[in-house]
Amino acid sequence: MKCRKCGAPAAINMREHKLALCREHFLEWIPEQTERAIHHYRMVERGEKILVAVSGGKDSLSLWDVLHRLGYAADGLYIDLGIDEGIAYSSKSRAFCEQFAARQGLTLRVVSVPETYGRSIAEATRLSTRGRKKPCSICGLVKRHIMNRVGREQGYAALATGHNLDDEAAVLLHNAMTWSGGYLVRQGPVLPASRPGLGRKVKPLCRIYERETAAYALMRGIDYIYEECPFSVGSSTLYYKDVLNRLEEDRPGAKLQFYLSFLQAKDGGLFALNASGEAELHDCVTCGQPTSAPGKCAFCRLWDSLAPALPLPQDGLREGDGGQGEMGS
């Protein structure tokens, strides 16, 4: 297969675009496409301060690289979740982010969850009185909270994440299976700031296949963490991505069409915010972040519930309670 632009041997074939490109032209194509999405969805303007959430994985580091190359003022935020049992996932992924920032001369902010909030994600999961919570839902809550906090304290106009098309299509399929209107209506490339002073959330890679963000990282020589977070094993995301890839094999472009036609239908009013969906936001009495119910936000309620009387578990928690422990009242 030959590169459509120069005829050299192609390094990648993108069946959804009927487009094969060599390394050099693919490395131009990804930033061009990202820039187009940024404009199309009005994500950020040049000169605005952007905070990129980096995990050490291929998507977020590629995004940071692309934004920097395109001339955007993008700092990185690494949230150290303290997931260091087994493969030392957090320490390794942090090292990849630090190495990338140092090589490119970029600013990386680091917030350690265990150091700042006293518990790692695994500990919070085990100690949660809502014992049925999964690590990933706690992790998501914590990451959103920290990202909002840093964004607001440091005055970032936009908070960018490395979500790719496969991530978005998997979430969409998941929510469509149950017609979760409240989630569907809020899913999109841009989530506007819910308050003055809070950044909008943007996903500049939302139209790029995961296979292509990985190819970009490989071709660009970005070192990223290849291992998975141990909590992702058996995740529903992986299941939905697999289902979608089977569709994609038979019908190239199916994933992209699924997502883009959803956005179009949403723009056309298919999913309307109902009265409860657009409920008035309140300020959390503890941290000040917006929350849908008066009082404390979900993050502060969760952290309060973590059996504060227990000593910090430096001596190691029991193995094999599967992160489902029900402790406390």
Binding site: M1, S55, A214, A215, E228, K241
Partner: peptide, 30 residues
């Protein structure tokens, strides 16, 4: 993604005897 000697290759390639091709997993579940 398929790589050979560190370079990405497209999957229309006809396989030759004795070659070694490394497949990089690209899907993550976090």
């Amino acid at each position: 993604l398929a790589t050979q000697n560190g370079e990405l290759i497209t999957d229309d390639r006809i396989l030759k005897p004795g070659e070694e091709i490394r497949l990089v997993a690209v899907i993550s579940g976090g």
